[in-house]
Amino acid sequence: MGSFRLLEILAGFRAIISFLIIIVTWQSIASLGLVPEKYFPSILAIAAGFRDMMMSGELVSAELRTISRALIGVASASMLGIGLAVLGDLFPSFRRGFAPIAALVQPIPPAALVPMAVFMLGLGPKLYAFIVILVTVWPPYFNGVAALASVSDVQIRTGQMLGLSRWQILRQIKLPAAMPEIFAGIRYASSISLIAVVVAEMLAGHDGLGFLLIRKAFAIRIPEVYALMFVCAVNGLIMNTIVNGLRWKFAGWQSRMTGQAA
């Protein structure tokens, strides 16, 4: 355990080192004037832009909107995906009927949905929920179906031998066994959800980080644009942390059994 800690600390340092390298390279490019300063502001200017947006409160409210939309969308998409996967596992004919629908809906880009959905759903939370769910439900669903189908026969037979009902086998044996794979799907879904929300906000043009990005870009407030991109990247890290925490709760048995860190 001790050596493991040390590695973790070193890994943390590595991130800091590479972060410092970015800042130094960025700053030297900016101050050498290789790129017009208007387009490539210094770190200080970006930090100032960040501070201005924090002070005016627009960043905080946009950030809260964006991340809550993504979180609500992913949470409901995961629940729906798992539910559909369970349905597909109980009724194979449902799975077969759902397959062509999934194959056709999956490749639709979120951007293409926005203009049409605005008319039907307005600019409120319904729009974002619809778009995020339609885009992110597939990874948990597909992984769930595959994982539920591949639960080992021995485990199911053991459950039957213990006199568990079909429902109990599903809840106590199959779902926990499928959770690690489902969470791999949710992890992927969470990264697409942020993309979908930002795209939708850019196109719907009402509020949120995506809207703020477009508005600052058209107002040629370049330092603010870079600061917002940084916030977008940090959002990805936040989502990852939340999903990893949940995975530890619901699928932690796997990491504990195989002895690997999450």
Binding site: S18, F19, A217, V225, C232, G236, L237
Partner: peptide
């Protein structure tokens, strides 16, 4: 590679549409 890896991880979390305004400038 090990120094640049965290940078790649960070870029991976940046949604591609978010780079549109910057690309537009250049």
């Amino acid at each position: 590679g090990s120094v640049l890896e965290p940078i790649l991880d960070m870029l991976a979390t940046l949604p591609p549409p978010a780079v549109v305004p910057i690309v537009m400038l250049f």
